[in-house]
Design a protein around this nucleic acid. Structure first.
Lengths: 129, 129
DNA sequence: CCTAAACCTGACGTTGGGTGTAGATTTAGA
DNA sequence: TCTAAATCTACACCCAACGTCAGGTTTAGG
């Protein structure tokens, strides 16, 4: 069996606090594989993967509600998913957002590069002159 | 002279509340062109452009502090900018972030497309069978 | 068996990014 | 000139996403 870890180790590996993990649990984003006797949480390796995915989606600007909506797709087996049309709808909204963001981000990157070049030119001029 | 507008019109054109404009003013993100007598704010068209730029940068995931740091670049004339090395530093940090985000976003988009295709295939199967 | 380290829950605090509201003032138009 | 609409300031409040603190329980190692 793949070994179970406690919240402390999970927290450390995932780079988030244990309180954050508790919080995510309340939102339904991660669940311990088991909680025996006194209530200690024991996690398997999918928990770590979920936390990493959550972090990645957060970096893309999704909030925790949106993440809750798309996260199952990465972990549920497709055959068991209910309401597939609804899921597709959500995905398409996210896709449209992603495409817009891609364009804006590309433009922003160009801006930044232009500004950097301009600044460096000015600095060089100042140093020469 | 290009006509000045009041906060109500600016608010409407920019698609943000006047309270938000007040808030941004406190953070130094926008300033009225003038405030005569009793304190009414009158804005020129650069204010609208600033608000639009702020919105665009927000969509890219910058927070208001980061926006405050890069916003001057879009409006100040380059010859007047102090501390150019510092500015370049900030820009390079933003550029690195933008590049990372571009990669992640591209991957996310691929994921979404894959998931959508998979879902639609499942739906089609269900309808056939 | 005992104790330190890890964990638990629940309540309250904090930060960022705003929104709501009240009461007073000002302005524009009939 | 008068009034309705717009604006002003200041303080309070909201939500998301956590963090802190307190007090109690559990577990692992010597």
């Amino acid at each position: 069996m793949s070994s179970l870890i406690q919240i402390g180790e999970l927290s450390e590996r995932a780079g988030v606090s244990h309180r954050t993990i508790h919080y995510y649990e309340r939102l339904g984003l991660v669940q311990p594989a088991e909680r025996e006797g006194a209530g200690y949480r024991y996690y398997d390796d999918t928990a770590l993967k979920r936390l990493e995915k959550i972090a990645a989606l957060k970096r893309l600007g999704l909030n925790l509600d949106e993440i809750a909506a798309v996260l199952p797709l990465y972990f549920a087996d497709a055959t068991g998913i209910k309401g597939k049309e609804k899921v597709v709808e959500i995905l398409k909204v996210q896709l449209a957002k992603a495409e817009t963001q891609l364009h804006e981000l590309t433009a922003f990157k160009r801006d930044l590069e232009g500004n950097i070049a301009r600044m460096e030119e000015l600095i060089a001029q100042a140093q020469r002159g």
